[in-house]
């Protein structure tokens, strides 16, 4: 009958060392995977927020009067009036409007009356309500665009071709 014996003294020491190395490396790796995942989510959020903001901006650009502008802005869920009017709509974590408050898209409107019309300062931004885990830099602002739109009281239309 054959009897096999292992040198357990050496093996135990090695296993303890391996576990220690794996633990140390594991902490670094998990952090790295975590940062990578949330960096990817942040990049995707930027693309989605950009698409939503640009779409809203193009709608505003196509409007012909301040009345049409305010009619469009009333489709936004929340409104705060003041010297600058603020309109906000909320999205859930999958960027579906109205079913959660993970993301917010805000339009700030500041009217400036001129002698021949109204110049509107527009600031559209997207924010995340909860900060991204693992990522310290960047803050909760995802996307921001600033522009102006002039609504003349007379003329100003595109030439008929």
């Amino acid at each position: 009958m054959n009897k096999v014996s292992l040198n357990s003294k050496h093996s135990l020491l090695e296993i303890i060392l391996s576990v220690l190395i794996f633990l140390a490396a594991g902490i670094i790796m998990l952090n790295c995977f975590g940062i990578a995942r949330f960096t990817q989510i942040r990049a995707n959020d930027k693309v989605t927020a950009g698409a939503i903001i640009q779409s809203d901006f193009e709608i505003i650009k196509s409007l012909n009067s301040t009345n049409e502008l305010y009619e469009f802005l009333n489709t936004y869920g929340t409104k705060e009036s003041g010297s600058i009017n603020t309109y906000t709509k909320y999205y859930d974590e999958n960027w579906i409007q109205g079913s959660g408050k993970e993301y917010a898209v805000t339009i700030e409107i500041d009217d400036e009356n001129t002698s021949s019309g109204t110049l509107i300062n527009i600031n559209i931004s997207a924010q995340k309500n909860n900060p991204y885990p693992f990522i310290k830099a960047g803050g909760q602002q995802i996307y921001s665009i600033e522009s102006k739109k002039f609504f003349p009281s007379f003329g100003g239309v595109y030439e008929d071709k």
Binding site: T114, K149, F150
Partner: peptide
Amino acid sequence: YYIHGKAEEKLAEISDVL
């Protein structure tokens, strides 16, 4: 969008002069 805003601002200036 920034330059678009600047162009609109110039348009407002021209409109006021007209």
